[in-house]
């Protein structure tokens, strides 16, 4: 890991750890913009990670998003950092959604951001809306705002230097990798604190094995995510991203289920924090292509190699 990336991750860890709490997550779920957290992030320059002139690139941007996912940070951080990196003009907060006729769909925090970007899968042309008008307020299954924004005639059309759909899918990969780590950590903490039959439930082999299975999934998701980030801009970008979106989504199915099982009924209450992580994981695995959508893309790449080219394809991922 590069020293710079380490430093960014450590700083972000501390900042999110200090500021993001249950009260903030509940407030955000009610649709309230978290100005305090937002201001702290901007003050520390995190919104410029990955942008030209910041001395950082995709590596640092997605490493930061992994930490944001770990803490369920309730702001449109992926959108903000990515829009700044693509457009070269820095804005405190942006939301990005897909163009669908005369609206941009499911824009994170569309109601609160100053800039909205609309993408079309497979195209490098995006639309930029600077005075967003909300036509429908909504939320994903984690209660994260996802609003439809009017695509007005004065929207700017711009070419971006990357594949927008890839970057957004990768942002969800990074968020999932972080969220998965958090679900495991929460389950371990709970299992070592909760006593039944006169001892912490972490002492029971059944619970230990459940946690071990979770740990293996978390490690796999983390490695797959890291591989996809490393491949940004290379000829392996789509293949590694597809593998990561598929693998992380599969890990979510196992880890979120098991985290709840370990927590018992308390983890099913709204009062408990766990669901802020698990519901996000369930939402993120669907956003910008679910497992099957990406498996088909990867399958098409593999089949195109022919049976005798499969091994060479697998090993040319470095």
């Amino acid at each position: 890991m590069s020293e710079q990336r380490d430093l960014i991750v450590d700083t972000a860890e501390r900042l999110f750890g200090d500021l993001v709490d249950k009260a903030m997550l509940d407030s955000a779920e009610r649709g309230d913009w978290q100005q305090g957290l937002h201001a702290s992030l901007v003050e520390n320059g995190f919104h410029e990670l990955g942008s030209a002139g910041s001395g950082t690139g995709a590596d640092e941007l997605f490493a930061f998003l992994e930490v944001a996912g770990q803490h369920a940070a309730p702001l449109p951080l992926a959108d903000t950092l990515i829009a700044n990196a693509w457009l070269g003009t820095i804005e405190g907060a942006s939301g990005i959604g897909e163009v669908d006729g005369d609206v941009v769909r499911d824009v994170p925090w569309g109601r609160a951001v100053r800039r909205v970007v609309g993408i079309t899968q497979g195209s490098r042309e995006v639309v930029v809306i600077t005075a967003p008008e909300v036509v429908r307020q909504g939320a994903n299954m984690a209660g994260e705002p996802r609003d439809d924004i009017a695509l007005t005639a004065d929207a700017q059309r711009l070419q971006v230097p990357v594949d927008p759909g890839h970057w957004l899918a990768l942002s969800r990969v990074a968020l999932m990798a972080g969220g998965l780590r958090s679900a495991l950590a929460q389950a371990i903490r709970y299992a070592t604190e909760r006593e039944q039959f006169g001892r912490p439930i972490s002492k029971f082999q059944a619970i230990q094995h459940t946690l071990a299975v979770m740990a293996a999934e978390v490690a796999a998701a983390g490695r797959a995510a890291d591989a996809a980030v490393s491949a940004v801009g290379s000829e392996r970008e789509e293949a590694e991203l597809a593998a990561a979106k598929s693998r992380c989504g599969e890990a979510v199915a196992v880890v979120a289920e098991a985290a709840h099982q370990v927590h018992g009924a308390i983890g099913f209450t709204h009062e408990h924090r766990l669901h802020h992580t698990t519901r996000r994981l369930w939402a993120w695995r669907d956003e910008f292509g679910n497992e099957v959508a990406w498996q088909r893309k990867l399958g098409a790449i593999v089949v195109a190699q022919g049976a005798d080219g499969v091994w060479d394809f697998v090993t040319s991922g470095r």
Binding site: A220, R223, A224, A227, A239, E240, A242, A243, A244, S246, R247, E250, E291, W294, Q295, R296, K297, L298, G299, A300, V302, V303, V314, G317
Partner: peptide, 11 residues
């Protein structure tokens, strides 16, 4: 199915 297996194998 091919993509699912490939994703697991690559990881």
């Amino acid at each position: 199915a091919v993509g699912r297996i490939a994703a697991q194998l690559m990881t």
